[in-house]
Each structure stands twice: as C-alpha cells, then as structure tokens.
Amino acid sequence: MTSPLEARSLSLVREGNTVLDDVSFTVAQGEIFALLGGNGAGKSSTLLTFLGFLEPSGGDILVNGTSVGSDVALARSAIAYLPEAAALYGHMTAYENLDYFLDLADKLASQAEIDAALERVALLVEARSRRLQSYSKGMRQKTAIALALLRETPILLLDEPTSGLDPIAIDEFHDLVKALAEGGQTILMVTHDVYGACQVADRVGLLRRGKLVGSFAAENNKRINTEAVHAAFAEREAV
C-alpha cells in the first residue's frame, strides 16, 4: 500500500542555501507524524514542498504515491494545510472566512457542519460573527483549525498548530488530532513543542539543519528520547 506522504532522499535549496539534505520518511494512513526541530531546521520548508510551492533540488516528494511535481493540483486537493501564521482575513468574520475558503477549496459545508467544527475547536459562539481582526492569536488559530477540519481531506499538514493556544486548548487540540487520525486522516505536523509532539504523535522525526537525524515511535505517548531531542535542538544557535 502506498503511503499518503513520502519524502524520498529529498533535498532542497532555497536561494543558494541547502535547506533540506537527503531527507527520507513516510507517513502511513491514519498515522500522526511529528517533525521536531529548532528554528530554521527546515520544517516549514518540508510542508511547502509537499504542497508544491518549493521544488526539490534532489530526490522526490510524493502524495498518495504520485510525485507532487507531476500533478500539483491533485496533491493540493488531498491536503488541508494549516500555515505557520494563521492566514485568514482580518476584515471578515469566522463564518465569512470559512465560507470563502471552503468555497475556494470547492467544498460544500452546511451551516450545521460549520458550527459543529467551530464547536470542536471551542470557538465561542459570540465570537463567530465578529471580524477576525478583533480575535486573539489563539482564536484565529482555532478558526484556521476548524477550516482544516471542514475540508475533510485525507491528509493534514499542520505547521505549529498549537502555537498561540493556551494549555487547555492544546490538550483539546491534541485529542482532536488523535480522533482525526483514528478516523483515517493522515497527519504531518511540525513543531518545536517536544512534549506536545511526543504526546500526540505516533512517530516523531528529528530535523537538524535540514537533515533527518533520527526518528522514533513515541510509545504510549510517554517516553521521550531526550538525548536525541536535545541533539536535534543542539545546533539551534548556530543557525
């Protein structure tokens, strides 16, 4: 069976700098894979490569077994992407934003489904008809997560999904992600949040300066391979 997401000896050069160097991993269907790494390690770049915004300078990147380069639109249609900075429109309400982006994704959703999604991310009812410019960072993040849920795509790419969320919201979010994976969605998330990643992910990959230096199963979501994690972050200062 082909994996929904696969990086094969992926290398990436951005403006002359090697950002990813011979990175290989797969994410199986229904699996949560967390990519951990320090600032500038190449986490966001990895996601952008899966979305076809960056072209590999070596190796290949596949979505559902098809090279992204050969059919970008197909790859994108299988993916809901939560960007690093929640990039919804500030001058529109949550409802208007969801309406716009769902339509853009060619996805129909009823008002009840939209409300259910907003309920799942715990966005206050009173806030839903307010413009996003009056939202806190976490509220914007929740709206963006609701959008990703509503897309109902087989694959989710999440870039720092819990940044800006309070501890309770983070817990709720992790439960949500696990439920989605149980429902069959494949999830690749990138984060600096070591403990969070180990709590939610099935497997964790460690990215250090563009190289995948290790990956391990986060067994029972408890044991953390501290040595490897620290090694992954060790060269942060040098970046």
């Binding site: 952008l48 970008v72 994108r76 249609s77 919804l88 982006f101 853009l104 994704a105």
Partner: peptide, 18 residues
Amino acid sequence: SASRHDFLVATAGSSLSL
C-alpha cells in the same frame, strides 16, 4: 505580504480558480 499567498493557493489547488 500578509503571508496568506501560499495558503490561498494551496486551498484553491490552482491559481486559475483564484
């Protein structure tokens, strides 16, 4: 400049429909 470009295009799938 609002770093929304890639998100928009990724959601739309193709530039043409956006």
